[in-house]
């Protein structure tokens, strides 16, 4: 029994080292002795029958235009997975493509996959926050944001957290959370710098697969280095 990690559009949505999210999850799972199967999906391809963790990353607006139609094509499957409790981590453009609608300019609006109940206006001025910090149920999340969007969640759509430093969704909240799916503007990449989220998601995925995830001493060693890197960004968060 292995855990299947599926990366969506890795050749298109990879502007900010997004493969790092896969790197972080796979490393932590393998250190815990779990078997991992790494899969990827690109436009026009065929989705695997099942996945335990689905990743989709950041990209340019031209990349979004190039794959929007394909995202629409696989949307029913992505929604079904999310509703069934599959772990989905969507960052930046990937998050936007999984919302309900995505505006790129005054005249261009694309339908999103509808995993997250909110609409995105990605035609705003660029926001860049080196030390993007978010209070969440996972603790303080840290990373970098670099986008041109406002995300307006439906009132019943839970956010990932509240922005402590940066812009996030534009209304003081950041990202979105529904069942085991997370959308965020945070990269660095996101899971690389936020092991609490990574561990929590792995635990869920393992449990759903009938496996147990138990971090060990090697995780602690890794986390000590993560703390050093986090510390650099945390020092830049205004008190």
């Amino acid at each position: 029994m292995s855990i299947r990690v599926l990366e969506l559009y890795p050749g298109d949505l990879s502007l900010n080292g997004d493969v790092g999210n896969r790197t972080a999850l796979v490393r932590r799972m393998r250190l815990a002795g779990l078997d991992v199967e790494e899969l990827s999906y690109s436009s026009g391809g065929e989705l695997p029958e099942s996945a335990d963790i689905v990743l989709i990353g950041t990209g340019s607006s031209s990349a979004v235009r190039a794959i929007a139609a394909d995202v629409d094509r696989i949307a029913p499957m992505l929604r079904a997975w999310s509703e069934a409790g599959v772990v989905i981590v969507a960052a930046g453009a990937g998050f936007h493509l999984l919302s309900t609608s995505l505006r790129l300019s005054a005249t261009e609006v694309f339908p999103g996959a509808g995993v997250f109940a909110g609409s995105v206006d990605s035609s705003r001025k660029r926001i860049i926050t080196e030390a993007f910090a978010v209070e969440s149920e996972f603790g303080l999340l840290i990373g970098t944001e670099n986008h041109t969007s406002i995300y307006t969640g439906r009132p019943d759509q839970k956010a990932l957290g509240r922005v402590r430093n940066g812009f996030g969704n534009g209304d003081g909240t950041e990202g979105a959370r529904v069942r085991n799916s997370i959308g965020t503007h945070c990269h660095g990449p996101f899971l690389v710098l936020n092991p609490a989220v990574a561990d929590s998601l792995i635990e869920v995925a393992a449990q759903r697969a009938g496996l147990e995830y138990r971090p060990g001493p090697e995780h602690a060693d890794l986390d000590a280095v993560i703390d050093l890197a986090r510390g650099i960004l945390l020092a830049k968060v205004p008190a």
Binding site: N16, G17, D18, V19, G20, T144, L228, I232
Partner: peptide, 30 residues
């Protein structure tokens, strides 16, 4: 400013690093 790109690099040509430096060296270490 943003170390994200380090994760896109294929580091297979390195088998170790002796010393890491610079104000953001921890990102390389990670």
């Amino acid at each position: 400013k943003d170390p994200s790109w380090l994760y896109a690099a294929d580091l297979s040509r390195l088998d170790h690093v002796d010393v890491i430096s610079g104000p953001k060296g921890a990102f390389v270490a990670l």
